[in-house]
Write a protein that binds this DNA or RNA. Structure first.
Length: 305
RNA sequence: CGCGGGGUGGAGAAGUUAGGCAUCUCGCCAGGCCCAUAACCUGGAGGUCAUCGGUUCAAAUCCGGUCCCCGCAA
């Protein structure tokens, strides 16, 4: 099997390893890449292309950037793809498009389905305190991440990993297994495995305000939360202070209220509902990222005696 | 010109609203205390207050220009 006509749909750099894998495999012929429109980015609001578009153009692949994917059904039909591959596109693909390719639409998803369906699957795994998660290649159907599974690969979650770390890992892993899985699938060598809906969970898309830390949680949960919200949306207190990195767990801190900053063994600590955490890196709004010790030295008004 | 915060000894901050001696915590150096110490005590060095200009008897502080950093937004 060679010269498989592929349309690749993705937007963020999460999809880059997958796109690269298809580009480097001569059995695939990428007839088009579909991604989101260019957006103004940064403080200067410079119009910037999605990373996927940049990669595609560098490899002379034509790029489509519809506002709504529904508007280019005819174009997709005209390309007569054998298969469509979707990696983190942030739009629902309508049934009319799912029906176009002979071999259907394939999705690369950043969790071990049926666990953590939805947009923030990676953050959810850390937030939930999972020991491992992974990547799933599945056939798309009308539901949200409900289609039959073609392949999965597991990743151990290291105790200090942020969502950013895990994201990188999973995106690379997805790129590694994508091409072989699709070839095996087209060759009819894969038995599709239906998802066990009773074991499913759903991780809804995060918003900026979801990064507000709830110090009425136990320290162990707050620590996971801080890692899960890194690098986006970040974790912050209601005092306009971002907390970037915490560690450890202190148990004998009865005299403070949840959310209080205090000094503990010459280090900055923050009280949670049960236990407290050492704060390693912190950032008051409008200021640079500083260490807990620096915060202790300079921001005395925030420190409870 | 998308909105907003900031630049003060080596680090992090206060002081700017209302102009009037350069302040605090930490670090550094020296000495002391101690069996000993990252603990404690005493003393010391280290500043063109980002930068350029203006107002004033007097500017970190008020006015104008420039450079740089950060948050929001994406």
């Amino acid at each position: 099997m060679n010269n498989i006509k592929v349309i690749f749909i993705s937007t963020p750099d999460f999809g880059l390893p997958s796109l690269e894998a298809l580009i480097n495999d001569k059995d695939f012929n990428i007839v088009s890449v579909i991604t989101k429109s260019d957006k103004p980015v940064g403080r200067k609001q410079i119009l910037t292309s999605p990373p996927i578009k940049q990669k595609a153009l560098k490899n002379n692949i034509s790029v489509l950037q519809p506002i709504k994917i529904k508007t280019i059904v005819a174009e997709i039909e005209a390309l007569s793809p054998d298969i469509i591959i979707v990696v983190a596109y942030a739009q629902i693909i309508p049934q009319v498009i799912l029906d176009i390719p002979k071999y259907g639409c394939i999705n690369v998803h950043g969790s071990l389905l049926p666990k953590f369906r939805g947009a923030s699957c990676i953050q959810a795994a850390i937030l939930n305190g999972e020991k491992k998660t992974g990547v799933t290649i599945m056939k798309m159907d009308a539901g949200l991440d409900t289609g039959p599974i073609l392949a999965q690969r597991e990743v151990e979650i290291e105790p200090n990993w942020t969502s950013g770390d895990l994201y990188d890992k999973i995106s690379v892993l997805g790129g590694e297994i994508l091409a072989p899985t699709i070839k095996a699938y087209i060759a009819g060598e894969i038995q599709e495995k239906a998802q066990d809906n009773s074991a499913s969970s759903y991780a809804k898309m995060l918003k900026k305000e979801d990064g507000l830390i709830d110090f009425n949680q136990d320290a162990v949960n707050v620590e996971r939360f801080v890692r899960a919200m890194q690098p986006w949306p970040g974790s912050f207190t209601d005092q306009q202070i971002k907390i970037l990195e915490v560690s450890g767990e202190i148990l004998d801190t009865e005299s403070y209220a949840p959310g209080d900053f205090f000094e503990y063994n010459n280090q900055l600590a923050v009280k949670c509902f049960r236990g407290a955490l050492i704060v390693n890196r912190i950032q008051p709004v409008g200021k640079k990222i500083i260490t807990g010790q620096e915060f202790l030295n300079g921001y005395k008004k925030y420190i409870k005696k």
